[in-house]
């Protein structure tokens, strides 16, 4: 493995940047979920968020583990410069309201599920088996957020309007986050057919438009909102304890 600072400069077609992108998405989402567990509207939701957050962090650990040993993975999480993180824009958002979290997680999980179906056919060593196993575990997440999106938006016109406003903010971020920076290079590195990820993105977007329409919701394209990238604040929070005594935790 190269030093953490060199990850961002890896060459086209290299597997490591692609795995880093997938792992970073899981790590940041796991951090958000474990951090907000406690302010969900019901106790059971908080238990669920904590459990899902642990799952995501565990998945990140496994993905880093495909190219890094334990010490290297720890440095990637706690010492890597923010500029070297590869997570998508959606994973970099840190929602502070329930319906924003609901929209973020619904879109994150549906995208992860659609991507996992493609990645489970990757020929790169270890990737397919790991993605298939992750998908088994994440079906619980998907069911949870799907149920809450439907429950909340069917509750009342006012509730649906709040969910719609959240989707209006989160959908452009999700749409910009489905693919890695260089999809062709990622497909070659993973051993996927050319265009497989782009096809999956089109199918996911179309399926989610229909699913939302059935709930009286819509997904409106637009530019990602300014200030959506809150990675810096997220990393400060994540590293707060570690930085009191680096290398000792």
């Amino acid at each position: 493995m190269r030093p953490a600072s060199a990850v961002a400069e890896a060459a086209d077609g290299d597997l490591e940047p692609t795995l880093t992108w997938l792992a970073d998405d899981e790590l940041l989402t796991g951090h958000v979920l474990t951090s907000v567990a406690g302010w969900g509207p019901e106790l059971e939701i908080n238990v669920a968020m904590s459990s899902m957050g642990q799952d995501e962090i565990g998945h990140a650990r496994r993905l880093y583990g495909l190219f890094a040993d334990a010490g290297q993975a720890e440095r990637l999480v706690y010492e890597r410069p923010a500029a070297a993180f590869r997570a998508g824009l959606l994973a970099r958002t840190y929602p502070r309201e329930w319906e924003l979290l609901l929209a973020r997680q619904y879109l994150f999980e549906t995208a992860a599920d659609a991507r996992a179906a493609v990645l489970a056919r990757a020929t790169a060593a270890g990737v397919a088996a790991l993605m298939a196993e992750m998908a088994h575990e994440e079906r619980y997440h998907l069911d949870f957020w799907r149920t809450w999106l439907a429950t909340t938006s069917r509750r009342s016109d006012a509730a649906r309007a709040r969910v719609q406003r959240a989707l209006d903010r989160m959908w452009p971020l999700a749409a910009a986050s489905f693919l890695p920076e260089r999809p062709g290079a990622a497909e070659r590195a993973l051993g996927l057919p050319e265009g497989a990820l782009s096809r999956a993105r089109r199918e996911w977007a179309s399926a989610e438009r229909e699913a939302c329409q059935r709930l009286g919701l819509s997904l409106c394209d637009g530019p990602p909102e300014a200030g959506a990238d809150q990675l810096g604040a997220m990393l400060d929070e994540m590293r707060d304890v570690y930085q009191t005594a680096p290398g000792s935790w």
Partner: peptide, 19 residues
Amino acid sequence: GAPDVPAPVGPPAGGHPAP
């Protein structure tokens, strides 16, 4: 065959020293 799942990433050998 070869391991399918990367090994769990735990604390370094020797465990966590006190900060």
